[in-house]
Simulated assay, not measured.
Amino acid sequence: MTSESPSSDLTTASHPRAWEQVLNTVEAMMVSGELLPGQRLPGERTLAADLGVGRSSVREALRVMEALGLLKAQTGSGPNAGAMIVSRPTGGMTMLMRMQVAAHGFPVSDVVQTRLVLESEVMRTLAQTPSADLTTAVEMLDSMDEPTLTADEFLVLDAQFHVAMADAAGNQVIAAMMAGLRASIESYVVAGVDVAAWPGTCTRLRHEHRGLVDAVAKGDAPLAQNRIVAHIRGYYEGVRTDS
């Protein structure tokens, strides 16, 4: 039996697999501006020929990119067929965080603490930005006032409200991370809902959400930050946050 030398390991590491080569090429095209959000990738046959790889490698790379939320694939033929670059890819981050929490790689308590850090910064930024557009966030609040909403429906709108606030703050990375963080522990949140106490909890959350918007409108950053910390901590009170 022979053993591989260190140099052979280095050679293997320096030469990516065929599907990784496709990923690297698409990434370079996006960085250079050759591919922009909303544009479609060249067809499988063209990519395979240009890169000197098999079509199966192209398909594998496209499946990875679709799973990561970078592409939206359309089957069939015609101008709307093929794979299109998604303008705001957050699926990959969400999937990663969900898997990490499920595998106990990310303790739920750590996820909650990270939310506190990120959303405190969001509220500080919003309170110091008089031109911030909170229209979408307020629309979410108005939707949450509907008395017939189930707990699940309310929590979906709740998550959209928090992401809308991050969007208004103008940091897309924070917005994407927040969406992933919230989705990663969604099942824990839903499972932790006390059905008997939900009407009171729902009323409290509505009041706290309005208080967040009010603090931002006043331009009071310390108040906005204090309120978001109290809101998030209160939100997870009673829900098990350790893995």
Rank of each mutant, 00 (worst) to 15 (best):
D145W: 01
A169V: 11
V173Q: 05
T148V: 11
T90A: 12
T129Y: 03
L118S: 09
M99G: 00
E119S: 02
T114L: 04
M93E: 12
F161Q: 11
A103P: 00
D158R: 13
V111T: 13
R182T: 15
I174D: 06
L116P: 02
Q172L: 13
V189C: 04
F106K: 04
E186Y: 09
M95I: 06
E146P: 00
A183E: 15
G92R: 10
T94N: 02
E119V: 01
L155R: 10
T90H: 05
S131T: 14
M177F: 04
G91A: 08
M144N: 09
G92T: 10
L181T: 03
V101L: 05
P89V: 02
A137S: 12
V101G: 09
A179G: 14
A176E: 08
L149P: 09
D133G: 10
R88C: 05
F161T: 08
L116M: 07
A132H: 00
L149D: 08
D167N: 14
E119F: 03
G82F: 09
M123E: 03
A137K: 11
L155W: 05
D145P: 00
Q160L: 14
V101W: 03
V156N: 05
M99C: 00
A81H: 08
G91K: 04
T136Y: 02
L155T: 04
H104M: 08
V101K: 05
